[in-house]
Design a protein around this nucleic acid. Structure first.
Length: 514
DNA sequence: TTTAGGG
DNA sequence: CCCTAAA
């Protein structure tokens, strides 16, 4: 390492040339494996069906429809507050086809007992592991199912693997990066792409539920902000809007992964699938709505407000609350992160989405706590290593699980480190500053540092009485102003090697530009 | 991914 | 702290 010479430059005592010369980002950039979105390898698609009883158990309000209209659901429904009521009525045959061209048909057991149906296949003990659930579409359409044909212990889902690759453990801000992906990126994914089976036809009709709409309008505003409320009121109450008719072709439910020995009988396989489906659907079910790929979260808003109308991309999902899951999630060993990432889709991990489904739009519970609930409930524990236990989440389920990070005020020592780094590197190289002074502070991102600097500059400019929080030593604030003053006058192209800066008053005294 | 700024 | 347009 080149020795660093210290020269006295007023406030910048000890100021030194940047040890990490700014290089073109194209050079600095670490190449990331681009996720090959194009990969079409479907996970095992699995077919599943919903039993009437299951649905009925979970339905808070029973709105039965005649068999003839089982795939026809008209909204709005009875209760504007409820999103648990599903219009699903009967299970239809579902055909599957997987990698091996295996076809499995799940028979709707109209009143029949599953066990009885497949009683013949119980000899093998039915070693069936429900490894994880992600999604699968239900009824009314064909659903594919992949079945492993070798004795490897996992399936390969390249398209997912590529996505999961982003969860690399070496990421400095792995957690945030992941979180951002989950809540920010994926929610932009349309449901069409991955779930074309979830087809919804929307038509419009006129009469029928006008009175109910009024109820919607009255109740939904209670949680709106004043600003929003005003807007809403301006709009709807007396509006005689059209009605939307929904024809839901299929529902999307969590994907189910199963594992059975090759020697298992077909019957046991069927039963396994049934058990898996039952496990998923048993208990409380929620109906989720996807609009343009985004989960519609606010139950209190009207369709109109939400933007659900004719010709919109709408999808419905069935979301089980997997709180009663029997098998605990498997964790991915940290050291094999990279490899497992590619196959993590088969890792039996509880899908956060399940939990989230029961939380829906009112809970404060966060993804953080879900994925980390077996560990210390501390944000600091959410390091990238631990994040490797993240289950693969459907884009649509990754939504709405964000939570604001807890506030963690900068300590004086942190401020000092920041000031020192900025003095050296300037105010436009937050990544370098992060690396230099906060490399081991996983909870401080370069954005955080940039923000902190911003507040420091502001703080330094206001009266001490106006400042809040732990007092920052005045000398530090002085340095802040000094450095801010200096760097605000230097372009990035000139900050390669500032040797002389300024005197205590912040006036520049000299600067060698290279 | 980073930077730069507004929210 | 968050969000995100730009680069």
């Amino acid at each position: 390492m080149v020795s660093k010479k210290s020269i006295y430059y007023g406030r910048f005592d000890g100021f030194q040339a940047p040890t990490v010369p700014k290089a073109p980002r194209s050079i600095r950039r670490i190449s990331h494996g681009k996720s090959s979105e194009g990969s079409k390898i479907s996970p095992f698609d699995l077919l599943a069906a919903i039993a009437d009883q299951l649905l009925q158990e979970s339905e808070s309000s029973t709105s039965s429809t005649s068999p003839e209209q089982k795939d026809q659901i008209t909204l709005p429904k009875e209760s504007p507050q409820s999103d648990n009521d599903s219009g699903l009525e009967h299970v239809s045959d579902v055909k599957t086809s997987g990698f091996l061209n295996n076809h499995v048909k799940l028979e709707p057991c109209e009143g029949k007992n599953v066990d009885k149906m497949e009683k013949d296949a119980s000899s093998h003990g039915d070693v069936c592991n429900f490894k994880s659930c992600s999604s699968v579409n239900l009824p009314f359409q064909n659903v594919k199912m992949g079945i492993r044909d070798d004795d490897k212990n996992s399936f390969k889902f390249n398209h997912r693997g590529s996505k999961m690759r982003a969860f690399r453990s070496q990421s400095i801000a792995g957690y945030r990066r992941i979180r951002k992906m989950l809540i920010s990126k994926y929610r932009k994914v349309t449901s069409k792409k991955d779930y074309e089976l979830t087809n919804t036809t929307i038509g419009e009709t006129k009469p029928l539920y006008q009175n109910r709409k009024r109820i919607y309008n009255q109740e939904r505003c209670q949680i709106e902000t004043p600003k929003r409320r005003k807007l809403l009121h301006e709009k709807s109450d007396n509006e005689d809007s059209t009605h939307v008719k929904f024809s839901i072709k299929s529902f999307k439910v969590p994907e189910l992964y199963i594992e059975v020995p090759e020697t298992a009988t077909v019957g046991s396989l069927k039963r396994t699938v049934m058990e898996g489906v039952s496990a998923i659907l048993a208990g409380e079910l929620h109906v989720g709505i996807l609009l343009e790929g985004k989960k519609v979260k606010d139950n209190n808003r009207t369709l109109q407000q939400t933007g659900i109308s004719k010709n919109c991309d709408l999808g419905f999902t069935l979301e089980p609350s997997f709180l009663n899951q029997k098998e605990p999630p498997l964790l991915i060993p940290n050291d094999t992160n990279q490899e497992l990432i590619a196959t993590s889709a088969v890792t039996p991990i509880m899908d956060v989405g399940f939990l989230n489904s029961s939380l829906d739009c009112h809970s404060e519970t966060s993804l953080d706590y879900h994925v980390d609930k077996n560990q210390e409930i501390m944000p600091e524990s959410l390091t990238e290593e631990k994040m490797t236990v993240l289950p693969f989440l459907e884009p649509t389920k990754k939504v709405e699980v964000s939570q604001r990070r807890i506030r963690r005020p900068f300590s004086v020592s942190e401020v000092e480190a920041l000031v020192e780094a900025v003095e050296t590197l300037g105010t436009g190289r937050w990544r370098d500053i992060k690396l230099r002074a906060f490399d081991d502070a996983n909870h401080r991102t370069y954005v955080d540092l940039k923000d902190k600097w911003k507040t420091l500059v502001h703080t330094a400019g206001i009266a001490p009485q106006q400042r809040r929080g732990e007092p920052v030593p005045q000398d530090l604030l002085d340095r802040v102003l000094s450095a801010h003053s200096y760097w605000s006058q230097h372009q990035r192209k000139h900050q390669t090697k500032p040797v002389q800066i300024m005197d205590g008053s912040g006036l520049e005294m000299g600067c060698i530009k290279i």
